[in-house]
């Protein structure tokens, strides 16, 4: 038996080592290279020199980078709140005593399986032609022109599409959370004479907190990395008002001759995502413990 266990362990290593090498080559190695490039003035071609922390210093004074962080954070913050409020409401509805339950659940999930790029193109037409036509007919001035062409409102267009797609996933996750709440908990709260409102805040919500955690982390991360919808709806415009961090890194890093500079941007972006996720998990864990 003892020698058997050793061959067993050898087999485990024989499987694990090639897998780790593969992971290292296409994940860790490019990340280390990106880190290295962030200290250079590399343009994506030709030679380069090491410039120390200059890219990082420049990041904090670069207006375009600052603008992209403002847009991305505004988008992710408003988006996360909207997505979670809407999907929790949807989940409560879809989990109650209704007819055609599975059909309705199926339909409301459709936006999520469709690709963000094509959906963006479809919505782009909707915002450019349908909404202004409605605006003209009803005489609502701020939508008489395409909101995607407005520096002030274009982000709302991107937000609507992002939320439309993200609500679908989070709803499914909240539904599976609601299903873990045992029926007798509700019966008990009914006997105690709790109103539906009290029941939600005192009984349902505390019990689905772990699912709220998952959904907060998932939706924030996905919204922060927004790319496809930008590509098809606004291309970052007008006047860079909807340029997300991912889109800026792609645009200027790949074609704009800012390989080194945008690598520094990507490193900061990575740290921001890790920081936000860890913060969310810590806060939510505390909340879970309190209950």
């Amino acid at each position: 038996m003892k020698s058997k266990m050793t061959t067993r362990e050898k087999t485990f290593w024989a499987i694990t080592i090639p897998v780790v090498l593969l992971f290292f080559t296409f994940n860790t190695l490019p990340m280390l290279k990106g880190f290295m490039y962030s200290f250079t003035n590399y343009r994506g071609y030709g030679g380069y020199d090491y410039v120390g922390f200059r890219n990082y210093k420049d990041l904090f004074t670069d207006l375009r980078v600052g603008k992209s962080y403002l847009f991305t954070f505004k988008y992710a913050l408003v988006g996360t709140v909207l997505v979670n409020v809407l999907s929790l409401i949807m989940a409560l509805g879809l989990n109650s005593q209704i007819r055609f339950k599975s059909a309705l659940r199926g339909i409301y999930f459709v936006p999520n399986i469709l690709g963000g790029l094509v959906i963006g193109y479809i919505f782009s037409f909707f915002f450019t032609y349908i909404v202004p036509a409605v605006g003209n007919a009803l005489n609502i001035s701020w939508i008489q022109n395409s909101i995607l062409a407005s520096e002030k409102y274009a982000w709302i267009g991107v937000l609507i599409v992002g939320v439309w797609q993200a609500v679908a996933t989070n709803t499914i996750i909240y539904i599976s959370g609601l299903q873990t709440v045992p029926e007798d908990v509700y019966e008990a709260s009914n006997l105690d004479g709790a109103t539906k409102w009290q029941e939600f805040w005192k009984v349902t919500l505390p019990l689905v907190i772990p699912f709220l955690t998952i959904n907060l982390v998932l939706s924030t991360k996905n919204l922060l990395m927004v790319f496809d919808q930008i590509m098809s709806l606004t291309k970052g415009g007008p006047a860079q008002s909807t340029e997300s961090i991912s889109y800026l890194i792609y645009r200027n890093g790949m074609d704009g001759g800012q390989f080194g500079f945008q690598s520094a941007n990507a490193v900061i972006f990575f740290l921001v995502i890790v920081g936000i996720t860890v913060a969310q998990l810590t806060i939510m864990n505390k909340k879970e413990e309190q209950l």
Binding site: T16, F23, N27, S246, G253, F259, F270
Partner: peptide, 26 residues
């Protein structure tokens, strides 16, 4: 193996944006 597990799973936090440019070259 525990260490390797954590190493691989932590890859979930790595956004494509940071890998993109080096990966294109590589």
């Amino acid at each position: 193996f525990k260490f390797i597990y954590l190493y691989i799973v932590s890859g979930m936090f790595v956004p494509f944006a940071i890998l993109m440019m080096p990966l294109v070259k590589q």
